[in-house]
Every structure is written in structure tokens, then in C-alpha cells.
Write a protein that binds this DNA or RNA. Structure first.
Length: 488
RNA sequence: CGGGGCGUAGCGCAGCCCGGUUAGCGCGUCUGGUUUGGGACCAGAAGGUCGCGAGUUCGAAUCCCGCCGCCCCGACCA
């Protein structure tokens, strides 16, 4: 077992894992690499999920659910797709257990071997497109805009809570369109929704961009990404939106009759974000005291702590404040615990990242004030009871904005141009973050850079300015800078 | 699968090199009391197949051999 890491500076990755555990977000359980999301972690995820779901529905999408198990043969229908996922699939081979002859427990019944093995979905393109074939006949059936909330399994070699687990929760949207243009537009619309969600709800600034051929989703023509920067200078791919062209339509023979009475293959997109976003939230905002949850996602936005404990006269005032806040749509909780001391509670709520804490004691009441502490800056101030509700309402807005601004300032400071190879390596090893550098556009060079520095091309930013230059590595001509970084 | 490290109370660890009373410490838990505006204090209590197996020895947490498990780094990846 490893020692506890208490500061971000010591070992960021380990500190992150300890924090996720200590704050009660999640832990590993039973099967190696599999994660249990605990109630507090799940409450935050639910806020994220609900908001994303609203944004999907506002753009015309509907939810459905497809099976967990996929016939093995489906996976081999799209050549690139198999290649991308074959190495990490969990396979179901039998459907029955029986008691062992020697009474040692249950064993797999060899007589119950499946004709065709089943794959536990690593992603659902194949089973969904196999289904879409029956759903789509005419241009009148298009566009088909479906999302599903599901779990998937990818048998990764190494895992890390939220960032990469064997099983994870996500949403995957799968759409079918009559034209290339419409599908490309959908791909970008969804990328934009992800970026807006990250920035407006998670207070997480992201770079929108296009993946290189090498980093592209298996089976896609184009993969777009939102890339976020963590506090240790490493990048995190936080969501992807794929333009699939007609690849899956061809693999699964999904055609439609056009208005012109011809028959065409449909155009496809898929897009997803996962519980990895929870990891991004933690790694982008936390400090040594614990989590800092943006108000829009905090399960409890304001906690009222009677000091030293819930005495009747304090509880009465607390109830009045809580009623006012609730009426304003604020998620508020009164701490009625009379066992722990205030200092303990303060530390505890800071660890959980609750945006605002209201301290309420005799001393305050005598002055007609309360103590308001904000988690993001740890500032405390004395606020009059009169007008408190409006003040808190505004404070939550301010905290949300401040968290985003702070993260954006950090991100912006950590996009560094490099013009020579020496500079490039120095930045990666020193301040970290994104390095903006010229690249000759070849996979060969990209891989050579990755080999030597562990940095990958995170993306070619959308609307990237074109400029003449030479590749940082090969010295060959280049037309634009791309963003490199070491990534999770 | 390669390179490191670690398995001792619910959690975090010391003890091991150099074998020797009844295996310790901190946190947590339970009881009682005093406290209560930034992680309270005092007193007492419960809690252990020292990862498993075999060996050396009068005697093994400690030494030897084998096995198992976990963590970290690398290859894979949302």
C-alpha cells in the first residue's frame, strides 16, 4: 500500500486518487479496474447527466437503449473498428454454471458453450447500426437522432479512478443523416454542446479541435475533441464527436430511398462523454483542502452550520435562511449534527467542495449578521441577515464565474509556442501544458515525437490560423501549428 | 508481459538488516467525563491466522525456498 499524499505538489496523480477516495466520490471494488461510484460522486454525476440530457433534447435528440451484449461477428464488419477495439474486449463464452464435482463451488458448465461468443459492448456502433438497418428505409426516416445512457467495458491494462476504468458510464449518441453536410453539421453541433457544457457547467475551459488520423476514433472519418488541461499540466480528452461518413452504413448495409427515388447509404455521427468528466472536474479545480465543486453541479450549494451546535434559537434562524434560499432555487442543507465541532465540520465541507458555507452563532446574531465562506477563494465575510438570500444567489454566480476564469487563466498561460525542438522539449519537461508547434502533417513524425517525448497531438484547433513554418521535428514545411501535450 | 516497491488491527505505518518477554504506534471505533467560533482533551476498553505454504532453529513478523495478492512506472486507451 502506498503512503498518503496530502499535497498536490508531491505526486499529482496519487494525490488525485487519494482525494477521490477521501471525498467519498468513488473507489475500486471487487474486480480489478472496476469502480464503484459512491453516493456523493453519483449525485454530482447526476447533475452532469441531467444537464447534458436537457441539452441533447433541446437539439432534437431522443433517448433509447440498446443491448449490452453484441454478437462477435458484428465487430468484424467494419475493418478499422475491429482493429481499434479487439484488443480490449471482454467476451462471454458460456451461459451457465454448475456445481463442481468435488464440491469446491461453481464452475463453468462446458455443455453451455455459446455457438457464437458475445462481446460486452466497448461502444455500441455495431449493434446500433445493425438495428438502424431495419429502422431506416426512406428519407422520411431521417435524420435519426438517438442517444443512449449506458455502461461499456474496455479491458484496459492500467486503470485510474474515473479517468480510465474497466467499466464506465457514459452517453453515446448515434445519428443517421441523408447528407454528408447534415452529418458534419451534427458532429460540430454536438462538439459545441460538449464544449458549452464543460465551460458553463463544469467551469472547465476546453480547446475544440480535430484529432489527427492517428488519434482518430476507429471507424471515423473525422474525430473532433474537447481538450482540457489539468492542474499538473497534463491534457485530458474530455469528450469526442465523430463524423463516421458512410463507413458503418456500408458495413451494416443501411440505405434509404431519396426524394429523387434513388437509393443511398446514410451518413452517420457518434459522440460521447463519460464519467471521465468527473475526473476532469476534480483535477481541474481541487486544492489541498479538497474538492471545489462548481455551484451549478454541487449537490448541495450552501450548507448552514449553527455554531457551536444546533441550539433552538440558531436552528430557527437557519430554517428561515434555508427557506429563503430554497425559494430562490438554491440547494441548501442545515447541519443538524450535534456531535462534531464546528472546526471539524468546516474542514469536512471544504473536503467535499461545497461552494458556500454559512456560519451562524450567537456572536453573529447579536450583530444581525452571518459568516459567509466561499470555497473557491476560501474568503470569509460577515454579511447582514437582511438581504442575505440575494447576496448568496449572486455569490453562487460569482463563484461559478471565478472558477471558470481561474481555470481559463491557467489554461491560457499554459499554451506555449515552441519554435525549436529544444524549446519544445524544455516546455514539456518544465512548465507543461499545451505546446503550440508546427508539424509536417505526417503520422510518422507524430509517432516519432510521441516516442521521444510521450507528448501527443491533442488536436488541431478549430479555425486554426494558417501560417507558414517548418515542422518542429522533421524540419519539413508546415502550414499550421497544432497543440501537443502529455495526456492522461 | 518487462522494471521497481509493498503485504503486520477498520485505515495509515513502525518493528525485519543483527531471530529472544505478553507484537507496537497514530487515526478511527466503543464507554465515561470535561469541552464546544477552524479538524477538542483526559481516562478506560475492544480490536491481530504478522498474505499463504513449506523449511532452518530450543525459539521466526524477523533468516532461506516456493506461491499468492496489491500498488507504482512502461506498452494499450474515453
Amino acid at each position: 500500500m502506498s503512503k498518503e499524499i496530502t499535497s498536490r505538489a508531491d505526486d499529482y496523480a496519487q494525490w488525485y486518487i487519494d482525494l477521490v477516495r477521501k471525498a467519498g466520490l468513488a473507489d475500486y471494488a471487487a474486480v480489478k479496474g472496476c469502480m464503484v461510484i459512491k453516493p456523493y460522486g453519483f449525485a454530482i454525476w447526476e447533475h452532469m447527466r441531467d444537464q447534458l440530457d436537457r441539452m441533447f433534447k433541446d437539439t432534437g435528440h431522443v433517448n433509447a437503449y440498446f443491448p449490452l451484449l453484441i454478437p462477435k461477428s458484428f465487430l468484424s464488419k467494419e475493418a478499422q473498428h475491429v482493429e481499434g477495439f479487439a484488443k480490449e474486449c471482454a467476451v462471454v463464452t458460456h451461459y451457465r454454471l454448475k456445481n463442481a464435482e468435488d464440491g469446491s463451488g461453481v464452475v463453468v458448465d462446458p455443455d453451455a458453450k455459446l455457438e457464437e461468443e458475445l462481446i460486452i459492448r466497448p461502444t455500441s456502433e455495431t449493434i446500433i447500426w445493425n438495428t438502424y438497418r431495419d429502422w431506416i428505409q426512406s428519407h422520411r426516416d431521417l435524420p435519426l437522432l438517438i442517444n443512449q445512457w449506458a455502461n461499456v467495458v474496455r479491458w484496459e491494462m492500467r486503470t485510474r479512478l474515473f479517468l480510465r476504468t474497466t467499466e464506465f458510464l457514459w452517453q453515446e449518441g448515434h445519428t443517421a443523416h441523408a447528407t454528408r453536410e447534415e452529418a458534419v453539421a451534427e458532429t460540430l453541433t454536438m462538439l459545441d454542446i460538449y464544449a458549452r457544457f464543460a465551460e458553463e457547467w463544469m467551469a472547465l475551459p476546453v480547446v475544440r479541435g480535430l484529432k489527427t488520423v492517428n488519434e482518430r476514433f476507429a471507424g471515423a472519418e473525422d474525430t473532433y475533441t474537447i481538450e482540457a488541461l489539468m492542474q499538473d499540466g497534463k491534457a485530458l480528452q474530455s469528450g469526442t464527436s465523430h463524423f463516421l461518413g458512410q463507413n458503418f452504413a456500408k458495413a451494416f448495409d443501411v440505405k434509404f430511398a431519396t426524394k429523387e427515388n434513388t437509393v443511398e447509404f446514410v451518413w452517420a455521427t457518434s459522440w460521447g462523454v463519460s464519467t471521465r468528466l468527473m475526473g476532469a472536474l476534480v483535477m481541474a479545480h481541487s486544492d489541498d483542502e479538497g474538492l471545489i465543486i462548481p455551484p451549478k453541479l454541487a449537490p448541495t450549494q450552501v450548507v448552514i452550520v449553527p455554531i457551536p451546535k444546533p441550539l433552538p434559537e440558531l436552528t430557527e434562524v437557519a430554517n428561515t435562511i434555508a427557506a429563503d434560499l430554497k425559494a430562490r432555487g438554491i440547494r441548501v442543507k442545515i447541519d443538524n449534527d450535534d456531535q462534531n465541532r464546528p472546526g471539524f465540520k468546516f474542514a469536512e465541507y471544504e473536503k467535499l467542495g461545497m461552494p458556500v458555507r454559512i456560519g451562524l452563532g450567537a456572536r453573529d446574531l447579536a450583530n444581525g449578521t452571518v459568516e459567509v465562506a466561499r470555497r473557491d477563494t476560501k474568503e470569509k465575510s460577515s454579511i447582514p441577515l437582511d438581504g442575505l438570500g440575494a447576496h448568496i444567489e449572486q455569490l453562487l454566480v460569482d463563484i461559478q464565474a471565478n472558477m471558470f476564469e481561474r481555470a481559463r487563466a491557467y489554461r491560457d498561460e499554459h499554451i506555449t509556442p515552441a519554435n525549436t525542438w529544444t524549446e519544445f522539449v524544455e516546455i514539456l519537461d518544465g512548465k507543461g501544458g499545451f505546446v503550440s508547434a508546427h508539424w509536417d502533417g505526417t503520422t510518422e513524425t507524430e509517432l516519432a515525437i510521441k516516442d521521444e517525448t510521450k507528448a501527443t497531438i491533442r488536436c488541431i484547433p478549430i479555425d486554426n490560423p494558417q501560417e507558414v513554418g517548418v515542422c518542429i521535428k522533421s524540419g519539413k514545411p508546415s502550414t499550421q501549428r497544432v497543440l501537443f501535450a502529455r495526456a492522461y
